[in-house]
């Protein structure tokens, strides 16, 4: 039982990292959103598996949120938004794909070194989970810093948050507080982002952050 549980969790967490890599590779918004949906689905599977093996029914709620909210509602909403804004065909990367992927490999390596060393004494499964979660977080951050477009930055941020949930789910018996706050954060994050996008729509013609940057601080 334990062996299989570990293998499956490992596999799913690894899948999440892989999907993160896929996201890193996408240079079109559409495909990025689709890959994100996949990312959320893998997260769902991973959390659900954790719920099963930890015998923690509350984790199913988290898994449900991941599936319904992140894998379906958000991608669909963002789809619509970018269609409306007419930016769905935009190709945008700052750094070339090759260097980005190389950086991503480096980050995964770093997180493995840090975590496997760090958690040497901890539960083996948790240790693997943590390493992968850290990798997902770092990759999400990498997505954010290599994209110019606000929507893809938001997507990057959400993949980062998926990594957090992976870690939280892997933490055995983490109190309900965590799930609540996770849901809380997703909710607030999304609402606020929605508000902001709305406001930005109201004021600006594009959600490209470069346009926002024109109004930066003190430059007249």
């Amino acid at each position: 039982m334990h062996g299989i549980a570990f293998d499956v969790a490992h596999l799913l967490a690894g899948c999440l990292v892989l999907v993160s890599f896929l996201m890193l590779y996408q240079d079109r918004l559409y495909s990025l959103l689709n890959t994100y949906a996949l990312h959320a689905t893998v997260l769902f599977l991973s959390v659900a598996w954790q719920a099963y093996i930890q015998n923690a029914p509350d984790l199913y709620v988290t898994a449900g949120i991941a599936l319904v909210f992140k894998a379906i509602i958000i991608p669909v909403a963002l789809h619509r938004m970018i269609v409306k804004l007419g930016i769905h065909r935009e190709i945008e990367t700052v750094v070339g794909t090759g260097p980005t992927m190389l950086a991503g490999m480096g980050l995964v390596g770093l997180s493995l070194v840090v975590m496997l060393h760090a958690a040497a004494g901890a539960n083996l499964m948790a240790r693997e989970d943590l390493a992968f979660a850290l990798a997902v977080i770092l990759l999400g951050l990498l997505i954010m810093v290599t994209r110019r477009n606000a929507v893809s930055q938001v997507v990057g941020f959400m993949s980062l948050e998926n990594g957090l949930i992976l870690a939280a789910a892997g933490a055995k018996g983490m109190p309900l507080v965590v799930e609540m706050s996770v849901a809380f954060s997703i909710l607030i994050a999304f609402i606020v982002i929605g508000i902001f996008l709305f406001r930005i729509r109201e004021r600006f013609d594009t959600v490209d952050l470069q346009a926002l940057d024109r109004f930066r601080g003190e430059r007249q």
């Binding site: 957090l164 933490a171 983490m174 706050s181």
Partner: peptide, 9 residues
């Protein structure tokens, strides 16, 4: 949050 989770772990 990640730091908090790690402390918990």
């Amino acid at each position: 949050l990640f730091g908090t989770i790690l402390v918990y772990m």
